Structure formats: C-alpha cells, structure tokens
Amino acid sequence: MEEGEKRIEKAVDLFKSGFNCAQAVVTAFADQYGFTEEQALHMAASFGGGIGRMRMTCGAACGLFMLAGLEKCAVEGKDHESKSANYALVQQLAEEFKKRNGSLICAEFLGLKEPEITNIPDKRTMQYYAKRPCAHLVEEAARIWLEHLEKK
C-alpha cells in the first residue's frame, strides 16, 4: 500500500478507535508539518461533532481546513497575500468536500432537524458506527487532502 493510502487508512482507523473526525484527519498528516500525534490530537480536539459537538461545520472538513492552515498561512498580521492564499485554498477544499458529500454541516449528515447540543459524546458502539457517515467523511477529507498534496 502506498504512503498516501496508508494515511487515509490511518485517519479512518483513528476515528474508529474513538478520536473525533477532525483529530483523525489532522493526525494522519501531522508528521508532514512537524507535529507529533499528541500535538495534533490536542490541536484538533475542539472541532469534533461539528465544532464542540454543536453540529455545525463537519469535523472532518474542519480537519481538512486545519491542514490548509498548516500549509498556507500568514505569520505576520499584515501579510494579506498569505491570508488570501489560505482563504482561497480553504474555499477550494470546502467546495470539493461539498461536491463529494453534499454538505459541510454535521447536523445534515446526521439527519438532525435540530442539533442536539450537549457536551456528552456518544458512546462508540457498533450501532454508533453503523448509523453515521463519519468514517466515510473522514476518509473523503483525507483523500481530498492527499489529492491536493499530489497536485502541488
């Protein structure tokens, strides 16, 4: 299996081992940006469940956008060119994610009419994984990032 496919598989495995969608995506690529797995897990911890389990922007998409920031960002406040490059990349990635998955919104993926906002994460059971598209969304986000890297 090639390295890229291993990273995609790692992202899915991380999700299936209990980490949130954002953590799974970011951690699968963290070493490429000089981060340890633990640092990546900390960095992405708040973005699962559609950001803090508020069911807003999908955690897998948030992980994808965090990777975009690791690649392109302004490190000086007045660097408008780098900010613009980051925003353009995020918008491009978001469009591809929506094209493949139909949305960017966690609640929509889960079929929720109203987000169930609670700080208590669901237990990870066979039923949890069976009724959610999250593993697929993690896989798609990791694949989109891999495709982006291959184009560079």
Rank of each mutant, 00 (worst) to 15 (best):
Q92V: 10
V75E: 15
E37L: 09
I51T: 12
H148R: 06
E37G: 11
A130H: 07
L146C: 02
R7F: 03
M126W: 12
R55W: 08
S84D: 14
E116H: 06
V26P: 10
E114D: 08
G48F: 11
A40K: 09
L149C: 06
E116N: 08
Y87M: 14
F65E: 08
S82V: 04
A142S: 05
Y33T: 00
M54F: 10
T57N: 09
L93P: 04
K151C: 11
F97Q: 07
E116S: 09
E71M: 14
Q91V: 11
F19L: 14
V75C: 15
E2M: 07
E150H: 03
V75F: 15
H148M: 00
K113Q: 11
S82C: 10
A11N: 03
K113I: 05
V138L: 07
K131R: 13
R55K: 15
G59F: 03
I51G: 01
G102Y: 09
D79E: 05
G48V: 10
A22K: 00
A60E: 10
A85K: 14
T27S: 11
V12C: 02
A130C: 00
A28V: 11
I105K: 08
I51M: 13
Y33S: 01
S17E: 13
H42L: 15
R143V: 07
R7C: 01
Q91D: 14
E114I: 08
N20W: 05
E108N: 12
T36P: 12
